[in-house]
Structures are given as C-alpha cells and as structure tokens.
Amino acid sequence: MELTRRDALVAAVGTGVGVGGGGVALSITRSEPEEEASGSASAAGAGRKKGVDRELLATFVAVARAIYPSTLTGIEEFVRTYVAEQLGTDGEKTESRRTATRETASELDELAASWHDTSVVDLDPGTVATLLREIGVDIAEPDPSGTIAQRLRFHVVNELHYALYTSPTGGRLVGIENPIGHPGGTASYQQGPST
C-alpha cells in the first residue's frame, strides 16, 4: 500500500501544523503556507518555517523503513513531509522539540557508528531494527527526558507511528478508514465492512 504526500499532510493537519490543501473539509480557518511543504529545509511558508536539517530527516526515513510495515511504499516522501511540517515551523516550543529530537538522533547515530561502524542512514532496515532493539527502544516507555531508549521512543519511533496510524493509509492497513486523530468525516462509522 502506498503512503502519499496527502497522508503526511492530513496527519500534520491532525497535529495542528498549518497546512492548507490537505484535502479535508475542515472549517477551521488555518493560515495557508506560501507554498506547500516539500520536505526540504526550505519548505513551506517562507518566514514561518525554520526547516529541518537534512541529516535529521534522513535519520527519520531510515528508522521509518525499519519500523513501518514492509508493504508500504512512498515512505521517504511521507516521512520527509510529515517531519518537515512537525519540526520545521517557527516558535519556541518547536525549536525546543527540534533540538531535543536532533540530539536524540545524533546519539542514535553515535551508537550506530560504535556498534555497526557506520551512520544509521547507511544501515539496511533490518539492521536499524536490530539496533533499536539492542538499545531497548521496543520495550521503553516514551519519555522526552529519559534514557536514550525512552527518548528515541518518544521523539522518533512514536512520532513515526503517530504519523502513520493517524493517516488514512495507515488506518486502511489495519481496516479503519477514519482512524482516531484523523478528521475523516462522519460517513465511515455508518458503513458496514467492505465485501
């Protein structure tokens, strides 16, 4: 199943990032960015966006490839778009979150270099998954100020799972067209299972 840029944008709308054209008939007035997010550091809304550095985006993509279902395609664009929208906006809170996420990602990279002699972005998905398990991310409680395992769970793994499983494509993978956190309207709850 293919993740689309729209998935990332509507997931970002769900988390309150100012995105226009998400394809959802929300009546909340949100400010339109001057151009749509591209996932690059110079993405949408000149003057409103700080951007996310290339290395951090690459780390998110590498982890997503390890923790997302193998049937998914379009992961890179989805992740780049979502992360750019989540962490690329201006503001004190986002800046603080971006810094904490960057520090956590750097620590992951250091561990990859130490244990596997290369950057996490150059590891294959299976090895990234192994690395995360070796660190204990799979069993860690998410905590933004905890151990490296807890911070990775909070800032990276759960960020990615939140993005995926509140998106229409992520929901459909499980069997729900309008997952919690996604403003998918009030039609699907009335409908029976598709044949």
Partner: peptide, 26 residues
C-alpha cells in the same frame, strides 16, 4: 483499542505490529 493507541503503547513494530493491530482491531 484503537490502532494508533496500540501502536504507540506496544512492543512491536513493522509487519509484526501491523499483524497484531489487524487481529486486535475490528
């Protein structure tokens, strides 16, 4: 459980997580 809630609280990921979510939800 909702799928996103289970995904965020679980100890699996990838195909294993998806398989659990699919069997748990519905």
């Amino acid at each position: 459980p909702s799928p996103v809630g289970s995904a965020l609280g679980g100890e699996q990921w990838g195909d294993e997580l998806l398989s659990s979510l699919q069997s748990e939800y519905g």
